[in-house]
Amino acid sequence: MSGILVIGEVQDGAIAPVSGELVAAALKLVGEGVIGGVSLAVMGDDLSAITAADAPGADRLILMSHPSLRDGGTGGFDAPVLAVAALYESISPDVILFAKTDFGAVAGPRLAFRLGVGMAQDCIDLALDTGTGRVAVTRPVFGGNALAVYGFNGDGTQIATVRPGAFDGMEGEGTGAIEHFDVGAAVAGVRTTLIDTVLQASEGVRLEDAEIIISGGRGLGGPEPFKQLHELANLLGGAVGASRAACDAGWVDHSYQIGLTGKSVRPSVYLSVGISGASQHMAGLSGARNIVAINKDGDANIFKAARFGVVGDWAKVLPAFTATVRDLAG
């Protein structure tokens, strides 16, 4: 076995930032003495713009190009899983890291069960397991109410998906070797077919990029109040989000959902209105710097994480808040 294999991701022909976070996680393991040698592998249909300099921290960069690897594969992620399985056969890594993205959350488990080795999903920390010299992972469980630390049994390859944002990405220029890996026949076993992709055109600022988010929950009581949230977001140049309860009720589209099974956001200000702050909602807010809450229940969980809060009826608090913001803008 040799070293740590990091499965990075590609966006618009370039190595996506989350790949650097994975390399940082791998280097932390190396620093603690788990095992040396970090290989970053990325795949796509055209990787010609990528150079070793794009992979800071990695000892080598492995490129896997194939038409069936375009945009994460031809549906169901069959092709990338087959490609990584072939790479695994060739380099027998001790540890494999994926990002817990739409792709990694599927590819990591599929590879692990295909190889019959241990795997941990959605890890926020990786460390030396002092008892065994192998890897120990920390992952949020029960919706984020608790943290669990696991060690890998046996001596097989250890696979983990790492939560985006859990590690700071790498800076600087890479100096490692660059290699091409021919996935060739490996991707012939694709069984699922991607027929179509239908994307919601997002108006204004994307939630993931927004510096200010105004977010509404079940406490709003219906779809109408979201107009007020949009009005405020427009004033502040922000975006509107929602709890799952508001999305499931059909008040707003599911593309608004923030949380464990929705979007992860990292705004400077997150103003939540009528949201209780269930741990599964808060799981999407680990990157939010200032949580502000308007909730009529002073004991609501959201106030435990909030920096500022008003205990009261949003229907009275919010219009005054918005009017003041408008006055301040002059």
């Binding site: 435990k304 008003v310 005054a320 009017a323």
Partner: peptide, 22 residues
Amino acid sequence: SQVEIIEGEDEADAGRKLALRL
């Protein structure tokens, strides 16, 4: 918890003060 609860004469006033504080 390190929350700073903003209070006012009434709920609208608290909303106003929250905006000013931010």
